[in-house]
């Protein structure tokens, strides 16, 4: 039952965030790259002020799958690394925490590019 409730929350929160992005696309004519950067920085700020972990507890993947989650991981990594390693941490932390994701994106995209070709519509 608890899992089911969680799934509903994930669906609704994730959906609402995407609706927000869609509203930005329609109303402001911002390009998609700009919108991604805006949401990313929102994620960084939410993590920096310590709100994100409560949001994550509340709706799990509803917050971590959108690009906000990527931003929060970056900030979280930097904070953890600064606390552990000090000065160097602020350079390495963000990348270290998101390295698995970036690595996966690079490898899978590369493989996909080697296998597939673009199709004209």
């Amino acid at each position: 039952m608890e899992t089911f409730l969680m799934y509903i929350k994930v669906f609704i929160i994730g959906g609402l965030l995407c609706v927000l992005a869609e509203i930005l696309i329609i109303k402001t004519k911002l390009t998609s790259a700009r919108i991604l950067v805006i949401f990313l920085i929102v994620g960084v700020i939410l993590e920096a002020i310590g709100v994100f972990k409560y949001l994550k507890e509340f709706a799990g993947a509803g917050f971590t799958v959108p690009i906000i989650g990527f931003g929060s991981s970056l900030a979280k990594g930097a904070i953890e690394a600064v606390n552990k390693e000090g000065f160097l941490g602020m350079f390495s932390g963000g990348i270290f925490k998101t390295a698995a994701g970036l690595g996966a994106v690079t490898v899978f995209s590369y493989l996909s590019a080697l296998i597939f070709s673009p199709k004209s519509k």
């Binding site: 696309i25 998609s32 673009p118 199709k119 004209s120 519509k121």
Partner: peptide
């Protein structure tokens, strides 16, 4: 003109999911 070449020249990759 060709859709695929013009798309790359003026917009983005063909498989990019942009509305």
């Amino acid at each position: 003109s060709h859709y695929a070449t013009a798309e790359r020249q003026f917009r983005g990759p063909l498989e990019l999911g942009a509305q």
